[in-house]
Design a protein around this nucleic acid. Sequence first.
RNA 1: GCCCGGGUGGUGUAGGGGCCUAUCAUGGAGCCCUGUCGAGGCUCCGACUCGGGUUCAAAUCCCGACCCGGGCGCCA
Length: 436
Amino acid sequence: MEGHVPRTHYSKEIRPEMDGEEVVAAGWVHERRDLGGLLFLILRDREGFVQVTLRKDRTSEKLLECVKRLSKESVVSVRGIVRSDKRAPNGCELIPKEIKVLSVAETPLPLEVSGRIRSELDTRLDVRFLDLRIPRNREIFRIRSEVLKAIRRFLDGRGFIEVNTPKIVAAATEGGTALFPISYFEREAFLSQSPQLYKQMLMATGLDRVYEIAPIFRAEEHDTTRHLNEATSADIEAAFADHEWVMRTLEALIASVYENIRENSSGSLEVLGVELPEVKPPFERITYTEALELLAERSVELEWGEDLSTAAEKTLGEIMGAHYFIVEWPTSVKPYYTMPFESREEVCKAFDLMHPRMELASGSQRIHDYEMLRASIERCGLSPESFKFYLDAFRYGMPPHAGWGLGVERLLMTMLEIENIREVILFPRDRKRLVP
RNA sequence: GCCCGGGUGGUGUAGGGGCCUAUCAUGGAGCCCUGUCGAGGCUCCGACUCGGGUUCAAAUCCCGACCCGGGCGCCA
C-alpha cells in the first residue's frame, strides 16, 4: 500500500522486554474502550491481541479522532512505541505515533466477532470470512494444517510417494455411489468419488507405495452432521502388501497424528478446550460376525450380510470405547476389487477403521489377478468393457497390493470433539449449500 | 428422500389468540468517566420469513411456499 509501513511484529511477538522499541502492528479493530481521559484500542491479528493505549492529554487530537471513529473489525496498522506496563494485558502496550486505516468495516456486522454470542452455524457459514476471525473457529484450521502435515510426514517416512490423480473422470467407473455429472467439452464426465482405480493402476508402475490427499465428490442425498458432498480423503495404496500390513500402517498413522497434534498444537487445543486421548496401537480388531453378536446382546439385530446401520455403529462404539477395526466383512457388502479369503470366499480381506462415533476409514487387500477381478466386476452386475482402462493394468504384471481411504474431516471432527463436520472444512458443500 | 422440530431487531433469544406501540442480552448512535481487560453508567435506534385463511381480534391457530435444525435412510 502506498506509503504504508509493513508490519514488523505479530501481537504475540511484542514483549515487555522491548520497552522503548518502535514497532508496527497490524490487524483488525477488535474492541475500543473509551474511558474518557484514556482510550484503549484492542488490535487483533492471527496470533492474538495487542493493546494500543491513547491518553487524551498526551495524544494529538487527530489521532484521537481517528481512533474514536474506527468501526469494529476495520483493518489498521499502528506504528508506535512499546511500553512495558504491568496493567496492560500482556504486560506491555503500544503508544501509537501513527495509525493507518487500511480498510473500513461497515456496520452493523453480520456476526458477533467478539464470540460473546454464538451464532448459528448457518449464519456463520454465510459469512465464513468473519466467522474465522473468531480465534476459536480459526484454530480448527491451524490444526487441520498440522494434521495434513503429520499425515504427509508419516507416509513420507514410510516410503510412500505423494501422487495426484484426476478428479474429472469418465463414466460411472465404480458403480455404487452417485456421481456428479459435468460437461466435458462434447462429452459427459463426472467428478471423482475416490482415487481408488487410479491408485490401484499405479501399483502396476513400480511406484510401489503411493498416497494422495485430495477432494472426493459424492452426489448422495445424505444430509447429516457427518457427511459432505465434497470431502477430503487421504488414500494410500501399497504393493506387495496385504490388508494386515496396511491396517498396521493406518493405526500407526492415527497414533502419529494424535501425537503430533498434542506436541505441535497445544496452544490451539487449549483454545478449543480439547484434551487428546492416548491413542496407541494396536487397535482392537473384531470380526464382522463378532460385531453382530455384540450387537445382538444389546438387542440391535442385524442379518449377516447387511451393512452396519447408524444405530449399530453407535452401539458398537459404546461397547468398544476407542478406535477399533472391524475385519472379515461379507464379500457381498464390499466392492468388487476386494480380495476374498482363499478358504472362505463369502468373507473378504476388508476392514473398516472405526472411531466410537463413526467410521473413519475403510480398506482392504485388493484382487490383483486379472481374470478374478474381471469375474468379480461381472458378478457385481457391471460391465468389464467400461473398466478396460483399469483392467488393462492387471494384464501385464500386477503385484499383490492393499490400501485404504481415510476421511480427513472425520478424523478432525472426532479428534477435536466437534459435532458437525461442516465446522472442520472451510467452505462446506452439502445437500443445501453451494455458496460461498 | 422420509419423520420430527423450528423461522421474532445486524447477532442470539423471551413470548404460543386481546396484557405486544413485543422481553432480555449483544450490537449500533450519542453523552459521562484516566487503567480498561466480557469495562461501567445514562439516553436513543433497530424485528414477528412470505402468501392465503379462521377470528371482533393473529407474532401466537389453520393451509401452502421458501429457508433452517435434528434424526433416519442413502453412502465401498
